[in-house]
Design a protein around this nucleic acid. Structure first.
Lengths: 145, 145
DNA sequence: ATCTAAAGGTCAATAATAGTCAAAGGGGTA
DNA sequence: TACCCCTTTGACTATTATTGACCTTTAGAT
C-alpha cells in the first residue's frame, strides 16, 4: 500500500532496473519528475533515501546538456554469498555499536545463520542470506527509535 | 460488560487483519483515531498493549507525509508446518522459563522466523522450519549448563 | 576561449505524519 | 473509602515528504 509520490518513484525505478539487462538504468531527472508531476529535487530525494549504498545501489550522474542519472543495483543481484555475509557482519557490528543489539543477540543471529545456511547449495544459501540481510535491516529499523 | 474505546479499536483492527489475505494491514493513525473519536495517541496505546510481539504481532510505521502503521500477525501456517511451528513455540517458551533466552531474544527469533519463511512454498518453508528447530535445540543445549 | 542553454545538486523551509511520556480519569474491589 | 490498574488526553518531540530558490557542471555554439 505504498502511496506517496516518493514511494511510487521508487517502485517505478525498481521495475525499470529489474527489466534491464545489466541491473542498471539511466534516466533524466527532469523527465522523471515530469512523469510524476513533482519537482526535480524530489527525484534526488528518492535517490538519496532509497538508492544509496546501504540499500545496495550506486548512483552516478552528469550535469549539463545530455545529462543523466545512472542507477546500478549492486548488492542483492549477484549470487555472491561472501558479499552478503560481509553485509551482515557489518550490520551486526553497527547494531552492536549503536546498542540496538545485545552481545547475546548478535551471537544468536550468528548461530542461527550458520545453522540455517549449512549444507545448502549456492542458490538456496543466497536466498537465505539475502532474506536474513533484509530481515536484520528491518529488525534494526524497528529497534532504533 | 462495557467495552472501552481501546477494546473496540482492538476488535476493529483484528477484523481488518482477518479479512486481509496477508495477515497484514496498513492504517493511518490519525484516520483511525478520527473513526473512533479519540486522540491519535490512543491508537498507539492500543498497539503497544494489544499488538506487541508478545501477542504475536509486529507493528512497523513510517512518519511524515502518507505515513502509516503496518500491523502483521505472525503465526500462520499450513498444516504440515504447524507441528514444527508448535515445536518451536514450545521450545522457546521452555527456554524462556529456564532463562536460557531473554524475552528480546525470543522476539528476535520469531521475527527472523517470519521474515525468513515468508513467501516460501511448502517445501522450502518446511526446510527452513526444521532447520530452525534443530538450530534452536542445539543452541539451547549449548546454553544450559 | 568564451558564452549560453541545459542539465543535475544543495539546502533549508514547510507540511504531514507518528511516537513519547506523564498527568488526569474511572471502575472495580478489599 | 482507598487503592490499584487500565484508559484517556494532550503537549511536546521525531521523522519523512514535498517544494522552491539558488548553485554547479557540462556540451555545444560562436
Amino acid at each position: 500500500m505504498k502511496r506517496s509520490i516518493s514511494d511510487r518513484i521508487e517502485q517505478y525505478i525498481k521495475v525499470l532496473i529489474s527489466r534491464s539487462d545489466a541491473q542498471q538504468i539511466e534516466i533524466q531527472r527532469a523527465e522523471l519528475a515530469e512523469t510524476f508531476s513533482c519537482v526535480p529535487s524530489q527525484v534526488t530525494y528518492v535517490l538519496s533515501t532509497r538508492f544509496n549504498g546501504k540499500d545496495g545501489y550506486i548512483t552516478e550522474s552528469r550535469r549539463g546538456g545530455k545529462g543523466f542519472v545512472r542507477i546500478t543495483r549492486i548488492s542483492s543481484s549477484s549470487p555472491d554469498c561472501t558479499r552478503l555475509q560481509n553485509d551482515l557482519e557489518e550490520m551486526i557490528a553497527h547494531m552492536l555499536e549503536e546498542q540496538h543489539l545485545q552481545e547475546s543477540e548478535a551471537q544468536l543471529i550468528n548461530y542461527l545463520l550458520s545453522a540455517l545456511s549449512e549444507d545448502l547449495d549456492e542458490e538456496q544459501r543466497h536466498l537465505v542470506l539475502s532474506r536474513m540481510v533484509k530481515a536484520i535491516a528491518r529488525y534494526n529499523s524497528l529497534h532504533s527509535k
